[in-house]
C-alpha cells in the first residue's frame, strides 16, 4: 500500500530506475545468502533419502542418490513413541512460549521504566544470571529433591521460563516506545496493568514475535532438561528422543552382536534432523505474519 503512494508522489523516471536497480541489487545479495543457507538444508534432506553406499561413491548431492527411505523406516519402527514425543514437545513449547513471553515482558516493562526505583538493581539482578550459574549438580539437586519435579513436565518448562537475555532485549525495546501515548493513558486514569496490556504489549508486536520465536526455538530444540530430569519415556520430548535414538544407533552400529542389516547411520543422522526441524519450520512460517511494519500510534487508534 505504501509503495503505491510512493510511486504516485515520485514521477521522475530516473529515480524510479535507480530505485529499481537498488532493489534488484538487494534481492541479489539476499538470494545468494539465502542459497548458502538453503543448500546445506537440501543436502540434509537429500542425504536422509539416499542409499549410504551410493553416497560414498557419488559424494553429497542435492538430489537423493539411490533413493531409499531405509533411514526413516529404521527410525520410525515405533511411530507411536515419535508422535508422543511431538505431543510433549508441542505442549512444552506452547506453554513455555506463552508464559515465558508473558512473565519476561512483565519483568522487562518495569525495568524499562525510568520512574521505577528498582530499575538499576533489578536489571543487575537479571543480568547476573546470564554470567554465573551454579552448574549442573546443584541445579539437579534443587529440581529433583527440593522441587520434586523429576519425571514432571514442569521440569521441562519452568527453568527456561524467564531468560535474562530475552528480558534485556525486551527491556531495550520497551524503553523506546513513544512516551506521549503512555502519558495520555495515564491522564485517562489507566493503571499500570492496563497500560501494560492495552498499550505496551500491542505496540511491541515485532519484538514480541521475535522473542516468541526464540522461545519456540529454545523449547523446541531442548534436550538438556529432559536428559537431566526425565526418565519416563512417555514424557520424552522430541529432541531428547532423537538424541537418544542417534546415540543408540551409533552404539549399535559399532557394537553389532549378530548378523543383520547394517544400520544406515549417516542417513539416519540426517533423517533425525529432518524430523526435528520440519514442524519447527512450520511454526516459524506461522509466526512470520506478526512481523508487520507500521504498528504506529495512528494505527492503534484506528
Amino acid at each position: 500500500m505504501t509503495t503505491t503512494t510512493q510511486r504516485r508522489s515520485r514521477p521522475w523516471n530516473r529515480y524510479r530506475t535507480q530505485a529499481w536497480l537498488g532493489k534488484a541489487f538487494v534481492h541479489a545479495i539476499l538470494i545468494v545468502l539465502g542459497l548458502a543457507c538453503l543448500i546445506p538444508m537440501m543436502l540434509v534432506i537429500s542425504i536422509s533419502l539416499s542409499d549410504e553406499l551410493a553416497l560414498v561413491k557419488s559424494g553429497y548431492q542435492l538430489y537423493p542418490v539411490g533413493f531409499t527411505t531405509a533411514a526413516y523406516d529404521y527410525i520410525l519402527q515405533q511411530p507411536g513413541q515419535m508422535l508422543q514425543a511431538y505431543a510433549v514437545t508441542g505442549l512444552v513449547t506452547i506453554l513455555g512460549t506463552g508464559f515465558g513471553l508473558l512473565f519476561s515482558s512483565m519483568l522487562a516493562w518495569p525495568l524499562a521504566r525510568q520512574d521505577f526505583r528498582l530499575r538499576g538493581p533489578l536489571s543487575f539482578y537479571v543480568f547476573f544470571t546470564l554470567l554465573f550459574s551454579g552448574g549442573m549438580v546443584p541445579f539437579y539437586i534443587l529440581v529433583t529433591r527440593y522441587l520434586g519435579l523429576k519425571d514432571n513436565i514442569l521440569a521441562l518448562i519452568l527453568p527456561y521460563l524467564v531468560t535474562a537475555w530475552y528480558v534485556l532485549i525486551l527491556r531495550t525495546s520497551f524503553a523506546q516506545l513513544p512516551t506521549e501515548l503512555l502519558d495520555a493513558a495515564r491522564i485517562d486514569g489507566a493503571g499500570e496493568w492496563r497500560i501494560f496490556f492495552r498499550i505496551v504489549m500491542p505496540l511491541s508486536k515485532p519484538v514480541l514475535a521475535t522473542i516468541g520465536l526464540f522461545y519456540v526455538l529454545r523449547y523446541w530444540n531442548d534436550w538438556f532438561l529432559a536428559l537431566l530430569f526425565i526418565n519416563d519415556s512417555v514424557l520424552y520430548p522430541l529432541q531428547y528422543l532423537l538424541y537418544v535414538l542417534m546415540r543408540n544407533i551409533s552404539f549399535l552400529a559399532s557394537n553389532p552382536q549378530t548378523t543383520g542389516v547394517p544400520i544406515p547411520t549417516q542417513s539416519a543422522r540426517m533423517a533425525l534432523a529432518v524430523l526435528a526441524f520440519g514442524p519447527a519450520l512450520f511454526t516459524f512460517l506461522l509466526l512470520q505474519k506478526y512481523f508487520v511494519r507500521g504498528i504506529t500510534i495512528g494505527g492503534l487508534k484506528g
Binding site: 550459574s133 551454579g134 546443584p138 534443587l142
Partner: peptide, 8 residues
Amino acid sequence: FAYLPMFG
C-alpha cells in the same frame, strides 16, 4: 532456578 543453585 538461577540464584538458588548458584550456591553450587
